[in-house]
Nucleic acid binder design. Structure first.
Lengths: 234, 234
DNA sequence: CGGAACGTTGACTGTCATCAATCTCTGTGG
DNA sequence: CCACAGAGATTGATGACAGTCAACGTTCCG
């Protein structure tokens, strides 16, 4: 099987096969560090830890975050559309594997296993893009925020008692706003409202928790789809 | 090379290799016809002519069009996220190739050529999704409409004298609105404004033309990126 | 302790959604 | 060929939500 089945989104297919790892080099990055500055070289990056963002500046003074990459995700620097100011930035400390496209191509031709892994990763990420289109295209501000919080809770959260969940916020308020196509001010207002409604709590800038993940999900019409695409491997 | 270079988005890589074609069956469809009604079977569709839409109903009474597929595009029915009312519909009369996933997987394993074609198609489509995220996430109503019109002009347009261009509108107003995350009423107002400004003209419901494609592009901050991703092969 | 970046909150404005009425195509049947 | 019906498209009046600008508070760093 070279195409990924919905049922095979498990841990073993998440990380790249050894041949791919051997073809690349590990890169350690601090928060807010740019990736793939050299546009001359077309690289593929595989996220091993941390969170990487794809950003662009379609307008003067306007930033848009187009994609969020988590552990196991694959990024092809040459596949970024020609939008002004497009580029990759880390949101948190991160470790990525950098593989030249030509070397990866060799591995793919030699190892069908690698093709299976790549197709699987790309299919997963394509689905997530479609879902995010639905989020920013059809949900109200509060619903968008709830959806992103559910995503974070599933991706980087530590479950607690009775459906409670503590999780890191890998993106700053401004970054979350740019991802959700909301104003940073508006996002702040929404977060305050959610806090007052006891749906979430925050501790410091980078962390949050929810007493009931189910309650948070009820605020997002697309929580079910998010859960399907971001739930940690069983 | 198994990954697609930006420079290789040419006609020869657009259509599936013969082995893939042999593994599937051609299906002819009328406008507004649904695809892949049987959720039991996971299929891959390749668009050979016409336009296919991926739609969903994230909210009661709200339709969102998540993706537009043109000639040469690849759709995997199993990759659609679990949003309510998600499914494929034709916008126009269309012909697609329907290939069972298991059969395609066999071909991919046997023929590296096929893997190259598939990776190429998926990379192209992923870029387009990112671009569309930027469109609905950061552009004003009029800019979104201009962007979509440029896309149509490049995809299905017949160039005329001095930058003029006549093109079919494969989507109805309602569908365009649902794709751009605009109200159908608002879209209609914007189209009227563009008509009064002589940027576009319409003849009947399904056709439009622009006296100057360059003028239309000037209304879209992302026209350059659209051109890069939708320009017909040289 | 001080400064800078980030986050919060309030008052105001603008854009787009909503609702309702009218108009225009398109296909059908007399 | 024309009349009709129904869906789709247009247009106007109105309101709500989110953006903008500005001021203040908080967190985190040296």
């Amino acid at each position: 099987m070279s195409l990924c089945q919905a049922a095979t989104l498990v841990a073993e297919t998440l990380l790249p096969p050894a041949q791919v790892v051997k073809a690349g080099v590990a890169v350690h990055l601090r928060p807010q560090q740019r990736l793939g500055a050299g546009p001359s070289q077309d690289h593929v990056f595989v996220v091993r830890s941390g969170v990487v963002l794809l950003e662009a500046h379609p307008q003067r003074e306007a930033r848009q975050i187009l994609d969020i990459y988590y552990r196991g995700d694959v990024i092809r620097s040459g596949g970024v559309p020609a939008i002004a100011g497009a580029g990759l930035v880390t949101a948190t400390q991160a470790e990525v594997l950098r593989v030249p496209v030509s070397k990866l191509a060799d591995v793919l031709n030699a190892e069908p296993e690698s093709s299976r892994w790549l197709d699987c990763a790309l299919a997963r990420q394509y689905s997530r893009r479609l879902l995010h289109t639905a989020v920013i295209g059809s949900l109200a501000g509060e619903e968008r925020v709830a959806t992103l919080l559910v995503e974070f809770a599933l991706r980087v959260g530590e479950p607690g008692y009775e459906g409670a969940c503590t999780f890191e916020l890998p993106l700053s308020r401004t970054e979350m706003a740019d991802y959700l196509s909301l104003n940073a001010d508006t996002l702040s207002r929404i977060m305050s409202r959610l806090r007052q409604a006891n749906v979430i709590g925050t501790s410091g800038r980078g962390r949050a928790y929810t007493p009931s993940l189910a309650a948070l999900c009820k605020l997002s019409p697309l929580a079910e789809a998010v859960t399907q695409l971001h739930r940690p491997a069983p």
